[in-house]
């Protein structure tokens, strides 16, 4: 038994490490198709990009000296998060979930902090836009996971339960969509000509690391609720649930990619208002249904 669990955790971790850039390549291909273009030559293009960036010379701008340290810290956090995520199908309890959430939130804040280190007045504009969205969304993230966990824990086959599940699923996936910084909420890199974001400060291996972390973060944000749902709701054997988690996550990831192509970019004031409104409405609906 322990052998199969170890194997499944190992495979899962490998998938978590390998999938995100591949999925990004698929997303780019789909985006190109919708825009009637060819797009990158293969779906592995993002992987090639990252490998090429890593092979470039290392240039550390003076403002980013501590940023590099933080990025490596973030990387080790990511590894732990991936391990815990892979462990969720094996056994899940509230304490482990709390640790995962804490790790993910601190990962986000480390990434935000790295960008704040920049002294470039133009990237600061984009960074603060990104931060504003992050703050709103991080609150949403905490609430949504909590609401979702509660819903699944108390799930029984009734209309009320299904409604609650629907709301919490909607909540949790909107949060993970916004957290993925896709259109219309990619405000941190909105107008590269006018006010750039954090990425402008990075180059070579640092840029590669940052991109990779960002892509893994995107994927984990999608995979986390699925892992919780599969682990608590379905109670399958680790190997099957592991496969299920990844299949569903890939489908949703690609779905997100399609949505991003179809929308325009929001503006910071509109974005904050809309997000607040959406989250409040969903929470209220959930509470109302719960109390009935």
């Amino acid at each position: 038994m322990a052998f199969i669990e170890t194997i499944s955790i190992g495979i899962s971790m490998l998938l978590y490490i390998f999938f995100p850039p591949l999925l990004d390549g698929i997303e780019r291909k789909i985006k190109a198709k919708i825009q009637t273009r060819y797009g990158p030559p293969t779906v592995f293009q993002t992987w090639y990009d990252i490998i090429k960036l890593i092979s470039k010379e290392l240039k550390i701008p003076p403002t980013l000296q501590y940023g590099v340290f933080l990025l490596t810290l973030a990387f080790s956090f990511v590894i732990v998060v991936l391990y815990l995520l892979s462990y969720i199908p094996v056994s899940l309890n509230i304490y482990m979930l709390t640790i995962v959430i804490i790790l993910i939130v601190s990962l986000h804040s480390i990434l935000a902090f790295v960008s704040i280190l920049s002294s470039n007045p133009f990237s600061i504009i984009g960074i603060f836009r990104g931060l504003t969205i992050d703050i709103v969304n991080e609150m949403g993230f905490l609430t949504s996971i909590l609401v979702y966990y509660l819903t699944i824990k108390t799930f029984n086959p009734s209309i009320k339960s299904f409604l609650l599940l629907l709301f919490s699923l909607l909540f949790v996936f909107i949060v993970s969509y916004v957290g993925s910084k896709r259109l219309p909420y990619d405000l941190h890199e909105a107008e590269p000509e006018l006010a750039s974001g954090s990425v402008i400060e990075f180059s070579g291996p640092i840029l590669a690391l940052y991109l990779y972390l960002h892509l893994i973060d995107r994927y984990t944000m999608v995979a986390l609720p699925i892992a919780i749902g599969v682990a608590i709701g379905l109670q399958l054997s680790p190997l099957i649930s592991l496969l299920l988690i990844h299949v569903i996550a890939v489908v949703i990831y690609v779905f997100f990619g399609v949505i991003a192509v179809l929308l325009g970019r929001s503006r910071i004031d509109i974005a904050v208002k809309t997000l607040m409104l959406i989250y409040l409405i969903i929470i209220l609906l959930w509470i109302v249904v719960k109390l009935i």
Partner: peptide, 16 residues
């Protein structure tokens, strides 16, 4: 204009 509004798909189709 659509590109400036972040709607690149519209930009591509307009130019197509």
């Amino acid at each position: 204009a659509l590109h400036l509004l972040g709607y690149d798909t519209g930009f591509m189709h307009s130019w197509r």
